[in-house]
Amino acid sequence: MSLLEVRGITMRFGGLTAVDDVSFNVDQGQIFAVIGPNGAGKTTLFNAITGVYEPTEGSVRFRGSPVRLEPDARLGLRAAMVAILAGLSAFLAINIQELWSVGIAANYVLNQPFPWGKAAGDALDAARAVPFAWGVLPAILGAGVGAGTVVALWQRSRRTPDLIARAGLARTFQNIRLFTDLSLVENVLVGMDSRMRSGFWTNLLRLPSFSRERTWTEREALELLEFVGLSERAHEAAGSLPYGHRRRLEIARALASKPAVLLLDEPAAGMNPSEVVDLMELIRRVRDRGVTVILIEHHMKLVMGISDRIVVLQYGKLIGQGTPAEIRADRRCVEAYLGTEGEG
């Protein structure tokens, strides 16, 4: 079984088919490249894999499982609770005035002990006396709308990027998306979020586990910045970094979640030749940490130099796959891409 299996992914936007029935497997420990001319659907494919888009057809399996929420008892429980709450709210919204008057106002005398039992009984009697159309009916309608809302919202969030990131697929973006007002360390710490355990109350009350977690996460964030060579600027704002460094920070942030797979979207874009050499080195070191790397890249020297396997996309279709040597020997692939745009 491969680590990541892409099976018949198709992405349509209106009439446009951006990705057309693409399948491939990525094995553990590989550096895997997706190449193709501009507009071939590479980034769209990444978005479909990482849950940014829901594929029109096809599926992605990671470690043999489709990373996707299935209907379970918790959903049922949540729907039931919301239904009860919404039904009760609908009933009370209409009848609270009456129940309050009968139960509380009528029984309460200033400075006298309040007869709680009698009040509850009176209110219950009043509630039972409410005619069907103003009592049971709105309650049922409210419950239905409540449960429907829960299911509708759940349906829309079955395969979201955060779920996939937490499962172990991290990514970078073609047009770098850092948290520019946060410092470098904080950027990495956000990436580490899925490994943190401290909750709201721990943070608010500064329980002992808070400082324990802060210590190890900050240490590890600094180590990651060291790994990509940015530790000197750890406390500067990410927005102040020069372009070349931003890619590295994005990689550090993505690695912070200890992913099994790292997806890099054109990591060498806009880099000069010496930066590209450094980047190749960095990607190899990432692989050596045990992270499987999938990358989209136009830079042929980089792709041919480090990839274990390559797939070629054209007009959304997969037109070839194999080792760098095999791709070089495949006339269709060369014509589609290398022949026109390759730079050696």
Binding site: D162, E186, V190, G191, F200, N203
Partner: peptide
């Protein structure tokens, strides 16, 4: 206290870039 903790960082990351934040595993 919240701002300078995991909770606050998650909030800020959503403000800075909601999609990137979600792709980093922040629900």
């Amino acid at each position: 206290r919240l701002e300078r903790s995991r909770s606050g960082r998650a909030w800020l990351s959503i403000r800075e870039d909601a999609l990137a934040s979600q792709c980093m595993g922040i629900p």
